[in-house]
């Protein structure tokens, strides 16, 4: 474990709970893409199947349980409890256009052709594009609530910190996983224009609005 990965995991945890609290407190999921949340739930479920078979540490197992539980809870709040506030008119990204190609790629490009490894690879590839429905929804509505932009900033930062973690681990532990690094780069690049807007606008107390 290194500081980049620890701060990255905490940033990820923060993002998930900022969103969960926003929905719970405001009793509304306006401006939030339910499709992205479904994809994130799929990412965690397919990635943490080894939760009971491969014990790494208490921290690792605890975080896996928290990530799965909190993301499933978010999907529940969005599609069941506060369904009336779900903005389905703007959350129209066709996620099958993500899941199918990512599923195919996981079969073709992976470290080992075993079910667990292919599912892990699928999860890594899917996570890199899972935010697209959310970014697409913001581009359609033209703006995002400030709390939603904080959520996105923390979520985008987590994988950027993981890139630093992989640089650290490469030099100090000789650890390198090309699939995770490439997908992590794609994932972080997708946030670049959002990061620019966040830093130039939200940091100065303005609302995040995309140029019309």
């Amino acid at each position: 474990m290194n500081i980049f990965r620890l701060v990255g995991d905490l940033s990820h945890l923060l993002a998930i709970f900022v969103l969960l609290l926003k929905i719970w407190k405001s009793r509304s999921c306006a401006g939030v893409s339910g499709k992205s949340q479904i994809l994130f739930a799929l990412v965690f479920i397919t990635r943490y199947l080894d939760l009971f078979t491969n014990f790494i540490s208490v921290y690792n197992s605890l975080m896996k349980v928290i990530f799965i539980a909190s993301t499933v809870a978010t999907v529940y709040l969005m599609y069941i409890k506060f369904k009336a506030t779900y903005d389905s008119n703007h959350d129209t990204f066709r996620i099958e256009f993500l899941v199918v190609p990512v599923g195919g790629l996981a079969f073709l490009v992976n470290h080992d052709f075993t079910p667990l490894e292919i599912l892990w690879t699928f999860s890594i590839y899917l996570e890199s594009v899972a935010i697209l429905p959310q970014l697409f929804m913001i581009s359609k509505t033209g703006e995002a609530e400030t709390i939603t932009s904080h959520y996105l900033f923390a979520l985008g930062s987590y994988r950027a910190l993981y890139l630093l973690n992989w640089i650290y681990r490469y030099y100090f532990e000789g650890y390198f996983d090309l699939i995770a690094v490439v997908a992590g780069c794609v994932q972080t690049i997708l946030y670049c224009d959002f990061f620019y807007l966040y830093i130039t606008k939200v940091m100065w107390g303005k609302k995040l609005s995309l140029p019309a």
Binding site: H111, N165, D177
Partner: peptide
């Protein structure tokens, strides 16, 4: 190439 490292990252 099968890498034997356990998946220790989240």
């Amino acid at each position: 190439d099968k890498d034997t490292k356990a998946k220790d990252e989240l």
